[in-house]
Structure formats: structure tokens, C-alpha cells
Amino acid sequence: MREPLLSAQGVSVRFGGLVAVDEVDLAVHAGELVGVIGPNGAGKTTFFHALSGILVPTSGRIVVVGDDLTGKSAHAFARHGIARTFQTPRVFKEMPAIDNIRFGLEFAGRTRKHAHDAFDEPEAILEFLGLADVAAVPAGGLTPSKQRLLEIGMALGARPRVLLLDEVAAGLTHTEVELTAQLIRRVRDELGLAVIWIEHAVRVLMDYVERVAVLHQGRKIADGDPRAVAKDAGVIEAYLGDEGEPAVEPTRKAA
């Protein structure tokens, strides 16, 4: 099998006595679009913090394209091609939108090239996201949904190999969610990225990913084809137990 772009091996994160992430293994390869779902407090975001170097895992290793980055600073992860977005968009509010995109190109992505040179200019990325008309607007002045898009653009600017998306669909309208999902698929296809996509509202995600991992109380309880996972007894129970609604099935209408 090919070498994974990113692999988490037995990653645990503990805060004092609380185990937020418990011995999670996850490997993603180029071209994969993997969803990570789980009820509230399942440790999804904490896991992402560990994958992007913001948190150092208490135990376990994180290997990026063969290099063990465990314990390295977040900028080392970024330079190895791990780019991410945040649950609440964290754009550089005072900077014009275009400088937000340029940021990744100048630092994390400086030494790499995209598979597609269409994404090597900040203007091109803005155009792709449909944000060309707000290039000069300070990012803080954009609407929340545009800030979300801009964050994806910032991550693309970093010329990533692996894209980590933390609830990019939260707070978007149904149409916006569909557009975002298509957009994510397009970058994955055109640039050959590995994408890991966390979502709390599971339905949309299940329609678009080819593989889904389920976190529950910090542990990975399932990992595989979305349809199979949706029928998994443990998964249904985890959702029923914690949320009172089986939101896992791929074809249900929006809640």
C-alpha cells in the first residue's frame, strides 16, 4: 500500500484526568476525502488540534509523509503540508482578504508547488472561491459565511497536501453547504489532496465523503464506508445515547 500522507498512531490527548482523545489511529492517503463525525464532546476538535500541531499529544505519534512530527510546533506541521480551518473562522481581521490568502503562500506553501498552477496566485484562489470582488476588503468586514470560505482559501494558499476542515458547514444555509461540499470535492480532485472533514451535522457530510470515521468519548468506534458505518450498531447507539436522534443515515432530510 502507498505511504499515507498523514498518519496518527495511537494518539491520546489528556487534560488532567480527562481523556479527550483516546488511542486514535487514522491514516489518510492522497486523493482521499475522509469524514470524521461524532457527538458533542467526542474529541473531534481536540484531535484536529493534535493533527495540526496546536496541541502536543500526551502519547502516540503523528507522521506526515514519513516524517515524525510529534512534539514539533504548529509551523512545522504547516510547512509539511498540513493546512486547516477552525470551527469559528480565524481570519486575520485587519488584513485585506487577499493578504489572508497570500499569507499561506508566503510561509507554509513557499517551498511547494500545487499540482495545478491555477492555485499559485492569491487572485486565482479568490476567484475560485467567488471572493474576487472582496479582495481588498479587510477580512473582519466580511460576512461569516464569506469568512468561512476565506479560511478555506487561506488553507489552500498554504499549498497543502492534507486539508483539515473543522465544521466548515456549520451555520451555512442548505445551498451554501451544498456549494461548499462541491468546492471541497473539486479541490480534492484537482489538486489530489487528502481531506479530513469534521462535521457535527452529519447528514451533508455522509453524502459527500467516501470514508467516515466515528469518534465517541475520545475513541474511534468505526471507520469505513459511510453506508456501512451508518448501519453499525455501536455508532447508532453512540448517537442515540448522546443526542437522542439517529442523525447518521446518509439520505435523511436536514434537521
Binding site: 509551523h75 504547516a78 493546512a83 481570519v91 486575520f92 485587519e94 488584513m95 497570500r102 510561509f107
Partner: peptide
């Protein structure tokens, strides 16, 4: 550019390399 990023959101600047 790096300094402005740090002034705006230091951790974010780190995650961008």
C-alpha cells in the same frame, strides 16, 4: 507580513507556517 499575522492571531499565523 508575518508580524502583522502575529499581531492579528499568533496561533493562526503558526498554522500557516
Amino acid at each position: 507580513l508575518a508580524l502583522r499575522g502575529i499581531g492579528s492571531d499568533e496561533e493562526r499565523a503558526r498554522t500557516l507556517g
